[in-house]
Write a protein that binds this DNA or RNA. Structure first.
Lengths: 337, 337
DNA sequence: GACACAATTGACAGCGCTGTCAATTTGCGG
DNA sequence: CCGCAAATTGACAGCGCTGTCAATTGTGTC
């Protein structure tokens, strides 16, 4: 019925163990033998049974992608990362599973433990914001589960992928400054997310470099959601001295800002400029199209997974790869009125 | 080190086979024994090793969710379905894997075969548009892999979840009619998708019921993408006799229509009403907020998976569950000018 | 209270693969 | 050509669980 490793061995005239070695790409197999075995595998369309490989070899060929579904309900950003991770796993015949992991609650680490005990992933891909929660990282290290991160806060001792978000944010604010804006507001994200901190830092850096003192009223706390962008904008536009430009820490919040501008009859970008960060599809679908920072999410997921796979396959230590960003100037930013 | 089934058996004073029976929730175990075994499992925090269960029991505890990544790059709709499927699988301790499966190309069925041979999913959840491709369904039946579908075209012989999309579309058009619109355009989706056919049929049904002859110029073919909505709207708004309302077959296309309206200086809804279908988050983020049909995607994913799991667990035959829709009247529709 | 029958439990082999370690072959220096 | 180390190959057990089927215990009947 099913072709087993033993059948391949018989056909190639070698022992099962040798076929196993070829299957796992191990060293110390002569070229001639390897070729013969590979040919037999192909001829018989051999498909190794992963449960048997896992049981005997004590590994799962499984990569788990963890995400926080508390602040990220079905976000486009995560969907893109997932797509990239999946592509990388496929390329190396690893399976991928996605695991939501609510970050609130004390039993957070216990739930991580359960995931590991239940599924025994060979490695884990961490996505923001669970890239930097110390107890979690500690537990992963104790349990010796290799992991790679997408946009971790700390670059020390971490593999995966990162982007210079602070520089990106600074670049965005410099774009606004170059248009002539001086009263530039910032809607930040959830305070303890690395993304929020970097983007806020970039904003401050650019403002300071331009010799502008920070006006605390112009920095409003958001939560990366559309609704929080709406709330922040209501607050900003109620100011006596309104900002002429608003830089939101992500596109969803920027769309909330634009929504409120519309609501109040303010024209974007004539009356107020608005810009975001991430370049999710929404950014191009808004009117006017949103000026934002393009972050190659899909590629980042792929690269992070590849670093992890390098470790899992014993090919190297993996590294933290820096990805480029780009400023996408569209129609939501213009000189101040 | 690791707690095995055998360890639990020893502690409970029964044979391993009996523990196995309890683990698999089989009949013919006395209540007393079951209780004792369950207690031992809990006390020892026993975690069955799924690779061993799979190998010995010849099943994988895996549900694969298939989607077409050709026309659906990282869509919100799929992300929501996935979330629901995942929840259902978790509840029954099944694993979920997501598999993109490009529908173009001849080797489509061969690639499906590869997925089955490589991963041996116990069952499959099919998402639009791959719910009704005959060769694929045939192969699944040949291979005896149970499957459930989300919004299949054919309701015969299918389990999963469906919505009366035709009625929903008709309801939407009736909403436009009741506002006083008569020249109502429709931007349809990819022709051979069930969703396109139903939504178009609902449009026609409502128009006919209102005694309006169909104007072929008012029905434009789209492809479910923002760009195709833009293209369709350019065509519609170039007409001498422009429509006063446009019903797009999904929200992404509707946002394209609104974009073009903005581009041409037409006010929505004063100059033209626009509405969509699906109620993805985008719908509420647009200005004006989009009138649309709410489709409970997440819930639908969950329900479809539950039907499949009912079959996998030998609990019943599963059925095709009908989900309710709702018309979300927001700010993009109003009486004609 | 004995008997037939059903319900419950257990013994044992084996799922398909890989780790361990021993056996064999190959390559190389002298 | 021989001897030795390195490279290559194979034998075998066993990973943790479940299917099969036999043994045991419980239940109802007359």
């Amino acid at each position: 019925m099913r072709v087993r490793l033993e059948d391949v061995a018989r056909r190639a005239g070698v022992s099962p163990k040798t076929v196993s070695r070829v299957l796992n790409d191990e060293a110390n197999v002569s070229d001639a033998t390897r070729k013969r075995v590979t040919a037999a595998m192909e001829a018989m369309d051999y498909r190794p049974l992963s449960s048997a490989r896992s049981l005997a070899g004590n590994r799962s060929f499984l990569v788990a992608m963890l995400y926080d579904n508390n602040d990220n309900p079905a976000s486009t950003y995560l969907a893109e990362i997932q797509d990239g991770v999946l592509e990388a796993c496929d390329a190396h015949r690893y399976n991928m599973m996605v695991r939501p992991l609510r970050m609130r609650g004390e039993d957070f680490v216990r739930r991580l433990d359960a995931v590991i005990s239940d599924h025994h992933p060979d490695g884990i891909v961490l996505t923001p914001p669970i890239t930097d929660y110390a107890p979690l990282l500690k537990r992963l290290r104790e349990r010796q589960v290799p992991f790679a991160s997408v946009s971790p806060v700390s670059r020390e001792n971490n593999i995966g992928v990162a982007m210079d978000e602070q520089l990106a944010a600074r670049t965005m604010v410099e774009h606004l400054l170059s248009l002539g804006h001086r009263r530039i507001a910032h809607v930040s994200g959830i305070a303890d997310h690395g993304a929020s901190r970097w983007r806020l830092a970039g904003y401050r850096e650019a403002m300071a470099a331009a010799g502008l003192a920070e006006d605390p009223a112009l920095v409003v706390q958001g939560a990366f959601t559309f609704a929080s962008g709406v709330a922040a904008a209501r607050q900003l536009f109620a100011l006596k001295k309104r900002p002429t430009a608003v830089f939101a820490a992500n596109d969803d919040m920027a769309s909330g800002v634009m929504w409120v501008a519309n609501e109040r009859g303010m024209k974007v970008p004539q009356d107020v400029s608005v810009c975001g960060f991430d370049d999710i599809p929404l950014a191009s679908q808004l009117w006017p199209a949103l000026t934002t920072i393009r972050q190659p999410s899909r590629e980042m997921g792929k690269v992070a997974a590849l670093q992890l796979l390098e470790v899992l396959r014993g090919r190297g230590p993996g590294r933290l790869v820096e990805m480029p960003f780009s400023l996408e100037v569209r129609d939501s930013t213009a000189p101040p009125p």
